[in-house]
Design a binder for these strands. Structure first.
Length: 568
RNA sequence: GCGCCCGUAGCUCAGCUGGAUAGAGCGUCGGACUUCUAAUCCGUUGGUCGCAGGUUCGAAUCCUGCCGGGCGCGCCA
């Protein structure tokens, strides 16, 4: 017994069954955290909801429920208001629950494939990639925690017509690609684009070069591979700065599906799902309409014979189910691609590549906005480089750190500034519901008060210091007398349920909200309950409570992909 | 035109598998440092939950219709 709520809910269901007949034991009592301290720790409105079907006044039902409940060992029950049943957990049961907080759940024998980050070769990573990477990392951690085997897939944009143009420009300029960095590649792209638009002969050569690339011409592939390499070096660098576990082993770029694309089209055609329309091979699915109510196609093969991005996405779905044996597929991609994924999932199911037993979910997220409330851009309208953004954040936290008088070494200070700056950005990205847009505001992100990363990190650092000073290893929680310590203990027991909920709803902000509540409860505890200056059993019990809180904060931040330094 | 998403305190956001007087933070104002790290804490101020109907014993939450905003709707991904 460790997570209180499920146990209490089960017992209440049993009580309903005993009092009103077996079928009622199936009812979820919908046990919730009490809305007010005077209502105890949990509350249920079960009696109110049963009033109609039982034909009895709610309070009578509540009376019988309480009489039938066998909960004396865990909590006391009371009836209040129109018929709410309030549960107040006994301190010893609460203490026991804190002492046996569950960790990572056992393997469930299911594999989840998570597609996220998706940077593009020859382009600087920007804020859009930040969101996908940060949210994707957090979800991978959470899914692993609840027992999934997580397979990361970084669907890097490394294929397509623009690479024909870029290779052609490299040859034209007689460049050594190895000498370029990511910025050099991006500028090369811009020169190539201009060249393409102004010189028809070059445009023709570029188109021919795409064919060479896709058919495996050695010289073309070599130049392309160098551009990919330069880009991956940069991605690796940024993942390191971000603290993302993504590696090259997770990169399965668009190019990886090149050989599958004809097969995709053939299989769709064989299944009778393709129609030629305006020279393109299209799948028209029921329920998808565009402007003027016209049927909306999924274009798998373009009129010029090339494959559309939908073909690549379909190949990826197929690969993930049949080769990677995914039991669940997740795409962390911005909300504007919602319709696209609806189409891909529907078509993949029609084609038999995606069985009904495998859920496919588009984890959509909103746009990062600038101070003007419009999509985040530099002053001249350019893309904000992720590298610059992160450097700014670290500089900001570093400046705050510099204002403190402590005895940290320069390396320690740097490491903390890094953890706080990056943590601040990540937390801000995760703290509100991902579907909402948010304004990128560094001042707010690095603030030490409010629902921010630094605030949580600070709570963790204080606890670490306190436990170091204690001079004894924390034992177990034995007494919880003060309301502040009960409230904190109660919250700690909700950690596991919160993580399970996030694994299901794929909403990391629920974990943020929970951790913030823990940190707030810790503050109240801190104010009201002296730890180091208390004595005897009270001291050791409070130390144990602090240790448990520190673990929850540390692990919770870890699930969010945020480092929790031991001092700040 | 059709579709998806959003609209809660001055600002930024929780709450929305319906449940007791709608919660935080920031900001305002006022307090607490020979610190369990004041990068903190406590108090104060503040809301027609976009509008109108409907379902219900009960609606910020569910349904319908509006209003306002964002995004999407065939060969970019």
């Amino acid at each position: 017994m460790s997570s209180l709520l499920p146990v209490l809910a089960l017992r209440l269901s049993a009580a309903a069954g005993a009092a009103f007949g077996t079928p009622y034991a199936e009812l979820d009592p919908e046990l919730r955290a009490a809305t007010k301290p005077e209502f105890g720790h949990f509350q249920t409105s079960l009696a109110l909801r049963l009033a109609k079907s039982l034909g009895l006044p709610p309070r009578v039902i509540a009376d019988r429920l309480v009489a039938a409940a066998e909960l004396d060992d865990l909590c006391s029950l009371s009836i209040a208001g129109p018929g709410f049943v309030n549960l107040t957990v006994h301190p010893h049961a609460l203490a026991e629950a804190v002492n046996s907080l569950p960790g990572q759940l056992p393997a469930r024998g299911e594999r989840v494939v998570v597609d996220y980050s998706q940077p593009n070769v020859a382009k600087q990573m920007h804020v859009g990639h930040l969101r996908s990477t940060v949210i994707g990392d957090a979800l991978c951690n959470v899914l692993a925690y609840v027992g999934y085997e997580v397979v990361r897939q970084n669907h890097v944009g490394d294929w397509g017509t623009q690479f024909g143009m870029m290779v052609e420009q490299v040859l034209f300029e007689q460049l050594e690609v190895e000498s370029l960095d990511i910025e050099g590649l991006q500028q090369l792209y811009q020169r190539g684009r201009k060249h393409f638009d102004t010189e028809p002969a070059f445009a023709d050569r570029s188109r021919a070069r795409v064919v060479l690339l896709q058919s495996g011409d050695a010289e073309t592939l070599a130049i392309w591979a160098q551009m990919v390499e330069v880009s991956l070096v940069e991605f690796d660098r940024l993942y390191a700065v971000l603290g993302s576990p993504l590696t090259r082993a997770d990169v399965v770029g668009e190019s990886a599906y090149n050989d599958d694309l004809p097969v995709i089209v053939d299989e769709l055609a064989a299944a009778g799902l393709l129609t030629e329309s305006e020279g393109a091979q299209c799948a028209f699915l029921p329920g998808f309409v565009g402007r003027d109510g016209a049927p909306l196609p999924v274009i798998v093969r373009k009129s010029d014979g090339g494959f559309g991005y939908s073909a690549t996405d379909l190949a990826a779905v197929r690969h993930r189910v049949s080769d990677l044996h995914a039991d669940r597929i997740i795409y962390v991609v911005d909300h504007r691609q919602g319709l696209h994924f609806q189409q891909i999932f529907a078509l993949a199911r029609s084609a038999g590549w995606l069985p009904d037993s495998v859920p496919a979910e588009h984890v959509a997220f909103g746009t990062v906005l600038g101070p003007d409330g419009k999509p985040f851009k530099t002053r001249d309208g350019g893309t904000v480089r992720l590298a610059a953004l992160l450097a700014d954040a670290v500089a900001r936290s570093s400046a705050l750190l510099a204002g403190r008088d402590d005895d940290l070494s320069e390396t320690e200070r740097l490491a903390i500034a890094q953890a706080v700056g990056i943590g601040a950005v990540k937390y801000a990205d995760l703290a509100s519901d991902r579907i909402n847009d948010y304004v990128f505001d560094l001042d707010r992100m690095v603030a030490m008060s409010g629902n921010t990363g630094p605030y949580l990190q600070y709570a963790h650092a204080r606890l670490t210091r306190l436990l170091e000073k204690a001079g004894e290893a924390p034992g177990v929680v034995t007494e919880l007398t003060e309301p502040a310590e009960q409230r904190l203990a109660l919250l700690l027991t909700g950690f596991g349920d919160t993580v399970v909920q996030v694994a299901s709803s794929l909403q990391p902000h629920k974990l943020c909200t929970y951790l913030y509540e823990v940190a707030s409860a810790l503050s109240a505890f801190y104010e009201n309950c002296p730890v180091l200056t208390s004595a005897g059993e009270q001291r050791s019990s409070r130390l144990a409570l602090c240790a448990a809180t520190r673990t929850v904060l540390h692990d919770g931040l870890g699930l969010l992909g945020i480092t929790a330094p031991d001092s700040m």
